[in-house]
Design a protein around this nucleic acid. Structure first.
Lengths: 115, 115
DNA sequence: AGGATAGGTAGGTATTCTCCTACGCGTCAA
DNA sequence: TTGACGCGTAGGAGAATACCTACCTATCCT
């Protein structure tokens, strides 16, 4: 279908399942691209640990790095977050106009998949 | 503000960071409330393991259970997913109209938080 | 009452996560 | 060239996950 299987989805959700990594994303969003040092100031954690978090974010496609001298500038890459939003879409009817039309039907419909 | 701190957010994202649990949510969304048995048919996993997944989903507020005889009917509770969508909002400008207006400014702005 | 059924809990194991302390590699400045 | 700086990787400890096999409770049926 799209080349990115469940593995990619797993990596993105797993990357988001950590407060430090979500905070990194917030910092990159609010303050723009930054080197590791500047990010590290906000955390009570040694830099190697933050480096590992950045690696997880990189492998999830949520950030990219660009070398500049001896610095590595990290930048937010939001495409995977758009995928998360797409993933959420089919659930929207459950918190908007909850029991109307088809929503009501499906919401009440008991399981019909028994052998 | 809302009483739910980062701990609740953590539980929700952590709950979503597993393909089995996301599949449970999908089944509840597409087929309506179901007992554990019906859900278990879809997984190559013993029922106690699925029970633990359901516990994680329950503690994240993503499902609720209603006892009916000796069955437990699980139902999707989408409110935490709405919270996820709210969490995503500030990132939207990064994948829509990427480099225009304020977006462009913030996107390029280097870090200005140095002592 | 006795057995079957639905589903949770206990406890164990293998793997993964998250942090740490060393250390290595490239870059810049003296 | 030598040393300091920026940042990653290696390897290890402890906690958390995700599965399993028992086993327990509650409900239903005969």
């Amino acid at each position: 279908m799209n080349g990115t299987g469940t593995a990619a989805e797993d990596r993105v959700f797993a990357a988001l399942a950590n407060a430090t990594r979500r905070e990194v994303l917030r910092l990159l969003r609010e303050r723009g691209p930054q080197p590791v040092q500047a990010l590290a100031e906000h955390f009570d954690m040694r830099r190697p640990s933050l480096s590992e978090h950045l690696k997880v974010l990189r492998e999830a496609g949520l950030v990219s790095e660009q070398r500049s001298g001896r610095q590595r500038i990290y930048r937010l890459e939001a495409a995977p977050l758009a995928d998360v939003q797409d993933w959420l879409h089919p659930y929207e009817r459950f918190w908007r106009g909850r029991l109307t039309g088809l929503g009501a039907l499906l919401d009440r419909m008991p399981d019909d998949d028994q052998p």
